[in-house]
Design a protein around this nucleic acid. Structure first.
Lengths: 134, 134
DNA sequence: CTGTATCCTTAGGGATACTG
DNA sequence: CAGTATCCCTAAGGATACAG
């Protein structure tokens, strides 16, 4: 794993170094919340990531063992990206992010149900999201 | 507030745009977890932020209304930085970050008690951290 | 469709000197 | 002490073309 030259041993700093950039979070969101698994799907996200950046970030996320490349069940010559256990453990973080934003900004319709659920039954929501990947 | 040209309305993307960089999280950690309030204190953190970057990030965090400049209680000509309510609402996120890291890496002694507490009584820990700033 | 490669511009950021 | 200002370099990243 990419464990090279961290700025410090602080756990917050660690998170910052692993997902503290302007694209990793968006890619992970696509996987965890949108169920995306393929390069083209990530590329199509409305934030508009460039192809070279996407490739670079996918490799970084793989290095950090948050995602992994798996053979494509449909096309034997191709592959897809899958979330790892380590990546799945970020779900509570994502839920808190959604709740934080929801407190201060209007939330798009696709996420409204998540917000409602998170407020009522946070652990249940986390479990449900996780369960989609087992 | 800095609400300019977001890449999308997605709540995850919003968090990414607000604190998704390599320094904001570290500065907020210094305030929330270390109780730092002054420029020189942030500058002294072991991650070694440069003076120009620190000044720039403090201004950004102010723009996002996560922190605010307040008159220094000790020296009337000077000031300090204080966390806002909006910033305080990030505490649950910080707790999840610590828990996530703790699952995969050794945690420095200063944070061990936080991890223990978070596992046992997450809401209590969040309340305790918040209560230091009222 | 899944990427690489290249070009080019801007932003990030380290080092250091300087100011009120 | 609390920043600004400057210099300079590297990394980030957008655009686009190309390849398997």
């Amino acid at each position: 794993m990419a464990e090279c030259e961290l700025r410090s041993d602080c756990p917050i700093n660690y998170v910052s170094e692993v997902i503290g950039d302007k694209w990793s979070l968006v890619i992970l969101r696509d996987m965890l919340l949108e169920g995306k698994t393929r390069y083209g799907e990530f590329l199509a996200s409305e934030e508009g990531i460039a192809t070279n950046i996407l490739a670079s970030r996918l490799r970084m996320l793989e290095d950090w063992e948050l995602i992994t490349r798996v053979p494509d069940p449909d096309y034997p010559t191709k592959h897809r990206y899958a979330i790892t256990e380590r990546g799945l453990d970020l779900v509570p973080l994502f839920v808190e992010m959604i709740l934080w934003t929801a407190k201060y900004r209007p939330i798009p319709d696709e996420r409204l149900e998540d917000v409602r659920r998170a407020r009522k039954d946070k652990d249940g929501l986390i479990r449900d999201i996780r369960s989609q990947f087992v």
